[in-house]
């Protein structure tokens, strides 16, 4: 039976954007990428549509991250580091300094996780079940609980450490 992408779109779009946002840390770009994933999906009849979507999203986010690194590198080269830094922090969606700092702390806390732990955690947070996460990450389904447990604990520890450091500095 062909995939009803309209239904999948309604049910999955926001999860996909959330997942991508934590990969690229730019909500506009995350939405662009999510839409790109669905544009590509329309030509596909996937056995597990959600798993397919997150696989493609993960790949796109990875490519995006590489491209962003290149762009940033050369913008720094061409326009001066200070200017580029200012541009890099200009996030119109961060309404306050506090929110921006919180987002930054989450980002840095996630960066302390291993790739596998981070991917499993973000896929769970995006709404995938253990079976889908296993398919996506290449882990055994029986290992997902343990991996999630470790990822959660490390995220909390890293975040508390960063927050504590921030409070101590402040």
């Amino acid at each position: 039976m062909p995939t009803d992408w309209a239904v999948v779109y309604r049910e999955t779009y926001s999860d996909l954007v959330r997942f991508l946002h934590r990969k690229v840390w730019d909500i506009d770009r995350a939405q662009d990428l999510a839409q790109e994933v669905f544009v590509r999906a329309l030509d596909v009849d996937a056995e597990n549509p959600r798993a397919w979507l997150f696989t493609v999203a993960n790949n796109l986010a990875r490519d995006e991250a590489r491209a962003a690194v290149r762009r940033k590198k050369h913008l720094v080269l061409l326009k001066g580091e200070a200017e580029a830094r200012a541009a890099g922090h200009a996030d119109p969606h961060a309404e306050s300094v506090e929110e921006r700092e919180r987002t930054d702390a989450v980002k840095r806390a996630l960066e302390t996780l291993s790739d596998t732990d981070r991917t499993v955690l973000l896929l769970w947070d995006a709404g995938l079940n253990y079976g889908e996460i296993a398919e996506q990450s290449g882990l055994k389904k029986g290992a997902i609980g343990t991996t999630l447990s470790r990822a959660r604990r490390r995220l909390v520890e890293a975040y508390e450490r960063l927050e504590g450091g921030h409070v101590a500095r402040g």
Binding site: H21, I27, R102, K107, L121, V156
Partner: peptide
């Protein structure tokens, strides 16, 4: 830990994602 991790992630979630 599980709940706290959920809170941390939720604090950085984009608000009001509207699907076109």
């Amino acid at each position: 830990v599980r709940d706290r991790a959920g809170e941390i992630l939720a604090s950085s979630s984009p608000d009001d994602v509207v699907a076109p």
